[in-house]
Design a protein around this nucleic acid. Sequence first.
DNA 1: TACAAAATTAAACAACCGTTTAATTTAAAC
DNA 2: GTTTAAATTAAACGGTTGTTTAATTTTGTA
Lengths: 208, 208
Amino acid sequence: MKTDFNEKQIQILLIAEKLFAENGFEGTSIRTIAKEADINIAMVSYYFGSKEKLLEALIVYRTSDLKIQMENLSVENLDPIEKIDKLIELYINRIRCNKGIYRILHFEFSSEEMEEKMKILNDVRDRNLKSIETIIHEGQAKGIFRKDVNIPLISPTIMGTFFHFSMNKAYFKKLLKLDTDEAFENYIQTTFKTHIQQTIKALLIYES
Amino acid sequence: MKTDFNEKQIQILLIAEKLFAENGFEGTSIRTIAKEADINIAMVSYYFGSKEKLLEALIVYRTSDLKIQMENLSVENLDPIEKIDKLIELYINRIRCNKGIYRILHFEFSSEEMEEKMKILNDVRDRNLKSIETIIHEGQAKGIFRKDVNIPLISPTIMGTFFHFSMNKAYFKKLLKLDTDEAFENYIQTTFKTHIQQTIKALLIYES
DNA sequence: TACAAAATTAAACAACCGTTTAATTTAAAC
DNA sequence: GTTTAAATTAAACGGTTGTTTAATTTTGTA
């Protein structure tokens, strides 16, 4: 699998990432990409072969450095509750900083057929699950967390809530009176982050 | 707003719902809809005006009875905790039974451009929020729920978790050893439903 | 039965799609 | 400086898109 791209190719990939994230794969034409990237329309086919192979190249380009970003939180010297807080902050910041590719993955690779093909994603997901498991088991051993938590469903709760919130951005901006995009971004990093942290902590600690 | 459709229109709406859910809005052509529904391609424009208005009509058609179910719940004679449980069950069953339209909403209305156009959806969201507000305020008045809950973020937590879980179906089927689609569906209605109920209740009740 | 409204049709419309071609320019190697 | 390969271009290709037209059929009503 090719993982190295020249300057021109990266230029195209970055523009494509932006446009795919904004308008979807089908909603973005090669002509739009070419115009935005200030290149001839034939260059996409010339460099990547086809529009679909451009998307494939983009996934490869982005997931290769996503792997490296993986950090090991579980060895830090913090109590389990602080670790949960930090884990959620990590989650949110990572998605925030790679909004484009996460959006694309979320949309274009949500069909079962596509999901099967992208085994690369499973590695990332498995590692995330392992990290969460380690932290929660530690908290359970210390008697802080309840024993009957459904650990595999923690990650969907965090990520799902985040995606759903930011995917209905226009609605929530109006509802929460967040006039600018900056205000929305700020809300995510403060109030919204706290909401998820509270939610997960409450789920882990609360005895019914 | 028009809410009544004749037989032919409903026939078109149902086919469109299926195709939009399968291939997306942009990925579905009027010609495909016409062929599948066994009508002339001009009939869509004739009955609905345009492709976009067809989508609008579909949303109106599918969300018109949701309103009643939600409002009935808030007046039922149950304590707030039971109402939350019922609300979440309602949410999940509602999405399960109307998978097609919810998939469309989830995917097509995530672009800001689309979201701006379709004001219809805002009414539905506002009504849902109102229902949740009523229930939570009742619980707060009775001293059962905490006062500092971020109510607008409850719905994204429920729906987001559900969507993210079912959108990564293939991964979770393997992870949770759910061999068949029926096993997956059953998992949603039992274990997964309980997880969300516990999560929301914990968030509403737990004092940190 | 006659007439008007509604429904349905095939055809054409202009615009856009992804891709390919063949000619031209640029860059590198000898 | 010449040769060769890579990069870039405008133009054209065949197809599909959503929508409109104008003619025809069906339907309901008086």
